[in-house]
Design a binder for these strands. Structure first.
Length: 576
RNA sequence: GGGCGCGUAGCUCAAUGGUCAGAGCAGGGCGCUCAUAACGCCUUGGUUGGGGGUUCGAGUCCCUCCGCGCCUACCA
């Protein structure tokens, strides 16, 4: 048994996430967590909402709510959707928690003591009407290069030229449209991660088997241009972790908060502390996952995220943890493996939150149960390149894989048994060569499935799982119990006894992908033995003759052409 | 502009430099009748984006061209 710490990138608080977000971090993390638990490992699976930053404040303002209230509500909404998709977090925290406030300030203080924090004064655009400093992209104006009138302060989307906000002609606030802008001086804390460049470089080099996507992005940031740059870790905002606090090794930061990308990853740790609090446990309960001097030395830590999050997880967060251990006093657990994902596109374009294009988590659950989405998304996870969602492909995959191959197998076996032997595992007969061959084939594919799951090769694992389902149909076709029943009912009984146990076998191994269907199947079988099959032969004898079961409801109803067309039209345009 | 990646069957995707480039779906044929008109077997389909090179051997390595995507440090 191993101890495995799993974190999913934190979903941002300002709205409901779409399926592209889901498949890029939370869903594959859940798959892995469920698999690890099923194999008997001790798992800590952590996620949280990322609640700080300008977009959260603006979303709250738009909703006419105080930001704290808005975040509290949206956190509940996201937590409910996570439950809807059966995301099995041990704790779903909030980056605005007291635990995160305390830990963020603690780590910042340690970094200050290590000499890794500097103060830099810089000029930023301030909007008088909005009463706030504006991030570059919240300033709009005419592009000095191409004349596009809605160019953003960081880059013109029309001609792709990178800009400084002060270069824009007729600049205005993208929030209010106000042109009452001025350049003001402001001081901020910077994380001197440039001094850790070599350390980070060596650390990344020492990792083996990381996805190319992960290492190439990290290397780019480490070596591009002048190399890794120091990064501002504070902002002029109200909502967040105050950068000025008792015992801080600096002055003059009153009214400022830490930048979200400083405090968000720290929330992985803080959320584990929130978990311990919720369980009524002491600090040692979470420290044994995060401090290698306090029990975490045998922990394997795996992170899941979309490619846009890679720089923060390969560089700034490790820099924070390494820096905080400058004197060897606080050895924090660093990540062992980063599984990163490309993007999922929607029917020829991108999912778009602003344009309401694509399917969002709440809408998805309104039209179909979670398992349908879990299966399609995971079996098409964008591991090697961006992948694409189309309704035709979704309908075809779900109908064929779930309804025909798996669902119909359960149906044909249980109904045949009910009509010929009644609703109990039949007795009599013996295994023959065909049954032994099936057991061997199942075991071979099961080992391959396990290998892919352990390597987090998600699409390959899904393919192997499907192939395992197919073996059942092949066996049934060859064994033909409907024929043997007429001549040798004992033989048919042995075949069906095996087939019923095979259904349980499928429920157990499929549970990480389709937990609800697995539950429903086990309930119908009246079986509570979820033990992972070590040997196929023994696993196929779990339910003995005489064990009562019932025929389950149809596990997966098919998606009709009419439904598909309806949804395709409905989700093409604006949300709602 | 710079960097990274991708381009393989109608579709979605596989293939440590090494048999005839594979699988699922879709298409075609046959079989079965337990089952959600489901299942099984067989089968059609490719100049691996174009061109050049290295090699005994290239989907894979190098160069070049075409097309697409992502990142480029103040969105998170």
């Amino acid at each position: 048994m191993a101890r495995i710490l799993i974190t999913s990138a934190l979903p941002y608080i300002n709205g409901i996430k779409h399926l592209g977000n889901l498949v890029g971090s939370q869903l594959p993390a859940d798959l892995f967590a469920r698999y690890c638990r099923a194999r008997g490992h001790e798992v800590m699976f952590i996620c949280a909402t990322d609640e700080h930053g300008t977009p959260a404040e603006l979303a709250a303002a738009k909703a006419g709510q105080p930001v704290a209230e808005y975040c509290a509500e949206m956190h509940l909404v996201q937590a409910e959707l996570a439950r809807g998709f059966r995301l099995s977090f041990d704790h779903f925290g909030r980056s605005s928690s007291q635990r995160n406030h305390a830990l963020t300030q603690h780590l910042a203080k340690r970094l200050g003591e290590a000499g890794l924090i500097s103060q830099i004064s810089e000029k930023q655009v301030y909007s008088v009407a909005d009463n706030r400093f504006l991030p570059d992209r919240y300033i709009e104006g005419t592009c000095p290069n191409c004349g596009y009138e809605r160019a953003r302060g960081d880059q013109c989307e029309e001609c792709t030229k990178q800009l400084e906000p002060t270069e824009l002609i007729n600049p205005r606030s993208a929030i209010s449209g106000s042109t009452d802008l001025e350049v003001r001086e402001t001081r901020h804390l910077f994380l001197r991660q440039s001094t850790l460049r070599e350390t980070l470089d060596k650390w990344i080099d020492s990792q083996t088997g990381w996805p190319v996507l992960t290492t190439s992005i990290a290397k780019k940031w480490l070596h591009d241009g002048d190399g890794l740059q120091d990064r501002g870790i504070t902002r002029d905002l109200d909502w967040g972790v105050p950068a000025q606090f008792e015992g801080a090794p600096w002055q003059g930061m009153a009214g400022k908060v830490f930048y979200v990308w400083f405090d968000a990853p720290i929330e992985y740790i803080a959320a584990t502390a929130e978990w311990a609090d919720a369980q009524g446990l002491g600090d040692d309960a979470w420290q044994r996952w995060w401090r290698t001097d306090l029990g975490a030395d045998d922990v394997r830590y795996v992170q899941f995220m979309g490619k846009d999050n890679v720089p923060f997880h390969t560089l700034s967060f490790p820099a924070t943890l390494i820096g905080a251990n400058f004197d060897g006093g606080e050895p924090w657990k660093l990540v062992d493996y980063i599984k990163s994902f490309n993007y999922l596109n929607y029917d020829g374009g991108q999912f778009s939150t602003s344009q309401g294009r694509g399917v969002f988590m709440d809408q998805a659950l309104e039209i179909l149960p979670a398992d349908y989405w879990r299966w399609w998304l995971l079996s098409h996870a964008p591991e090697n390149s961006d992948s694409e969602f189309t309704w035709e492909n979704f309908q075809a995959s779900v109908n064929k894989d779930l309804a025909d191959v798996l669902g119909n197998f359960v149906s044909r076996v249980t109904k045949f048994c009910r009509s010929k032997f009644g609703e109990a595992v039949p007795e009599g007969g013996e295994w023959g060569a065909r049954e032994a061959a099936l057991a061997a084939a199942l075991e071979g594919r099961l080992r391959a499935y396990e290998k892919h799951m352990e390597a987090m090769e998600i699409r390959k694992a899904a393919g192997e799982l499907r192939a395992l389902w197919v073996l059942g149909n092949e066996y049934l076709q060859e064994a033909a119990p409907w024929a043997s029943f007429k001549t040798e009912p004992e033989q048919a009984a042995a075949q069906i006894r095996l087939a019923l146990n095979l259904i349980r076998f499928y429920a157990v191994i499929s549970q990480p992908f389709i937990p609800d269907a697995a539950q429903a199947t086990m309930r119908a079988l009246g079986c509570e033995d979820w033990s992972w099959p070590e040997g196929a032969e023994a696993a196929l004898a779990t339910m003995p003759a005489g064990h009562a079961f019932s025929v389950p409801e149809v596990l997966f109803a098919k998606i009709s052409d009419a439904q598909r067309e309806d949804w395709a039209a409905h989700f093409a345009g604006a949300r709602g």
